[in-house]
Computed example of a mutant assay.
Amino acid sequence: MHPIRPLLTALALFVGMAAWPAAHAGDTSPQAQLEHWSAQAGAPGNAARGQAFFNRTHGREWSCASCHGNTPTTDGQHASTGKRMAPLAPAANPKAFTDTARVEKWFRRNCRDVLDRECTAAEKADVLAWLLQLR
């Protein structure tokens, strides 16, 4: 083994570890998420559609508002467990929609609870377009 190889391996590991938090926490913004989902949907998010989607049930027991409130600018409470949740609207919660992995995880879980399926890119774009308008 070449004597420099362990040093290069250690350096690569150190650089990778240093970059990891930036790639996972605070790696995006609500506006970047909206642009991403709008591009995937092939149309910009529609706030009016997002508000309607958020506040109605979709053939199941819960709506998004069941836990997050009709206007999610204050703390929410899980409908089943009672666990407190930070506000969903980015204006009321600067951390909302800033971690891609976390956003994907919670959209996947919550959409399954509300819709019994994952949300489409258009549904995500619509909801976020509405959430971004809240103050």
Rank of each mutant, 00 (worst) to 15 (best):
M1D: 08
P3I: 03
I4S: 12
I4D: 06
R5M: 05
P6C: 10
L8R: 11
L11E: 04
L11M: 13
L11H: 02
A12Q: 03
F14C: 14
F14W: 13
F14H: 08
G16M: 09
A19R: 12
A19Q: 13
W20E: 09
H24Q: 13
H24S: 10
T28S: 15
T28V: 06
S29T: 15
S29E: 03
P30F: 07
Q31S: 11
E35P: 00
E35F: 00
E35T: 12
W37Y: 15
W37I: 00
A39V: 03
Q40N: 08
Q40M: 13
A41I: 07
A43E: 14
A43P: 01
P44H: 10
N46F: 00
Q51A: 08
Q51D: 03
N55A: 02
T57L: 00
H58A: 10
G59W: 04
R60T: 14
W62S: 01
A65L: 02
S66N: 02
T73E: 07
D75T: 05
D75F: 10
G76E: 01
T81I: 04
K83W: 07
M85P: 01
M85H: 10
A91W: 02
K95E: 14
A96E: 02
F97V: 01
T98M: 08
T100H: 06
A101S: 15
R102H: 13
V103D: 12
K105M: 13
K105W: 12
F107I: 13
N110D: 10
C111I: 04
R112A: 14
R112Y: 14
R112E: 15
V114F: 11
V114K: 08
V114N: 07
L115N: 10
L115I: 03
E118A: 14
E118P: 07
T120R: 08
T120A: 09
A121R: 10
A122E: 14
A122I: 07
K124M: 14
K124I: 14
K124C: 07
V127G: 01
V127Q: 09
L128Y: 04
L128A: 06
L134D: 07
